[in-house]
Amino acid sequence: METIKRVLITEPAKEVIDTLRKRFGSELMFHQSGGCCDGSSPMCFEKGDFKVGSQDVWLGEVYGCDFFMSADQFEYWKHTQLTLDVTPGRGSSFSIEIPMGIRFMIRSKLFTTEELKILSPVVTGEEKLSER
């Protein structure tokens, strides 16, 4: 059965990921932040640089990158479909695209009742890591 993805991506965001992969020579990952300042923005790291664990949720893969969020934050977000996008802007934080003068960002939409029934399954960060 086809499932509905929890995280989608725009074409401009894909291009940025391609550029970053080339520049860093490695695969990438995302962790959705919360809180102050640059919070509520997705953070992009080289794969494995940010340690996820049992209190993180893996929402799926987006353009080949694992996308995680802390479990308590996911409780408040899980009824919405996220789209990874990019905007010009000077963000702070350790997200690796920032020196390019751009910032990954999230756009959200509510899942429909039908979609909620067939959402792609999630696992914890710990479970995701042990799959390898």
């Binding site: 959705q32 932040s33 919360g34 919070g39 923005s41 790291f45 940010f50 702070s92 934080s93």
Partner: peptide
């Protein structure tokens, strides 16, 4: 550090 949760965790790491 003052900022958001993901960077906070990274700094703690």
């Amino acid at each position: 550090f003052t900022g958001e949760t993901t960077t906070g965790r990274l700094i703690m790491q």
